[in-house]
């Protein structure tokens, strides 16, 4: 029994060990990599994927998947940018963008629960439609006259005690997710829904509501990422967020969350997000060509996920 526990422990820490090794190796090769300012910018880069991956974890824990996050991100930023350029107060525009993200997530959730579509198909549909709507809404052109709002700049570019605001937000959101998933009844329902929905339903869990809430959270998190990107770029782009769902899913997979739902931990997703960020950042600094970067990334995911498998 002790043996089994010890090996489980190592398994649990597999992704973390991979992360530490990567940091040590890249750090050993490149002095540029191992600077505080680089770590801070690495964390800031990782937050974009991080928010999305946290939401994605919730959805995957219920046994679903959300392919629409990249498109939700694009469409919510588009709305937000047009609100701001239309003269709406930035704070209000941002809150509206988050609510719109929730609504888009709920729509995916509705297709999955009431529409009885498989999550992959349902969110493939919303992904396609939201992207199309973004193009229509923006007429294929960026929206860039966002004025000179302090709040807008703060979200993506600001610092507090030398730490970038996106990183602080990232850590706060991480803490909230840990709390919600580990300490609340809602968290239990998310796990139960993915573990065995029949059993959960008979134990009085409202399966449909739980799933919809997960998609809503995912939509909201995509919108959060979008706002930070909007702030950093100073404009909304119609192709923004294209392919982001894949990085998020990769981070969740790196964290060992079961794609069948029911099993996974949010802190491990956090580690997964960091691994991807370290790879992106480190390989760039090392001057590895972007073609090879993707191959290396795929390889690292393969090794990490295989070592995470049971037995």
């Amino acid at each position: 029994m002790n043996n089994k526990k010890a090996s489980n422990y190592i398994q649990d820490l597999g992704a973390l060990i991979a992360l530490v090794l990567l940091v040590l190796i890249i750090g050993a090769i490149s002095p540029e990599f191992r600077t505080v300012s680089n770590f801070l910018s690495l964390l800031r880069q990782s937050s974009i994927n991080g928010f999305i991956a946290f939401g994605m974890t919730c959805v995957i824990l219920t046994g679903g998947i959300d392919l629409s996050v990249g498109s939700v991100l694009a469409l919510t930023t588009a709305f937000c940018a047009s609100f701001i350029s239309g003269g709406m107060p930035v704070g209000l525009a941002m809150i509206l963008a988050l609510l719109i993200g929730v609504a888009f997530g709920l729509l995916s959730g509705l297709l999955v629960t009431k529409g009885r579509l498989q999550p992959f198909i349902a969110t493939l549909i919303t992904m396609t439609v939201y992207r199309g709507l973004t193009m229509i809404f923006m007429d294929g052109k960026p929206i860039s006259n966002l004025g000179d709002s302090f709040l807008l700049k703060l979200v993506g570019k600001g610092n507090l005690f030398g730490i970038p605001i996106p990183v602080i937000l990232f850590l706060i959101v991480f803490a909230i997710f840990v709390f919600v998933l580990e300490k609340t009844t809602f968290g239990r329902r998310i796990y139960a829904t993915g573990s065995n929905w029949k059993s959960a339903k008979l134990a009085g869990v409202n399966i449909d509501m739980t799933k919809m809430a997960a998609y809503a959270i995912s939509g909201c998190m995509a919108a959060v990422s979008g706002l930070i990107l909007l702030s950093r770029l100073g404009s909304a782009q119609p192709t923004l967020g294209d392919g982001y769902e894949l990085d998020a899913i990769a981070a969740v997979a790196l964290g060992g969350t079961s794609m069948n739902g029911g099993r996974g931990r949010i802190w491990k997703t956090f580690v997964g997000v960091l691994i991807i960020a370290v790879l992106n950042n480190g390989l760039n600094i090392l001057g590895v060509s972007s073609y090879y970067q993707d191959v290396v990334k795929g390889f690292v995911i393969l090794v990490a996920v295989m070592s995470d498998q049971k037995r």
Binding site: Y191, S195, N196, S199, L202, R263
Partner: peptide, 12 residues
């Protein structure tokens, strides 16, 4: 099938 989440603990 319906009674338990087999992969979960007794507690959960």
């Amino acid at each position: 099938v319906e009674g338990l989440m087999l992969e979960e603990s007794i507690m959960k």
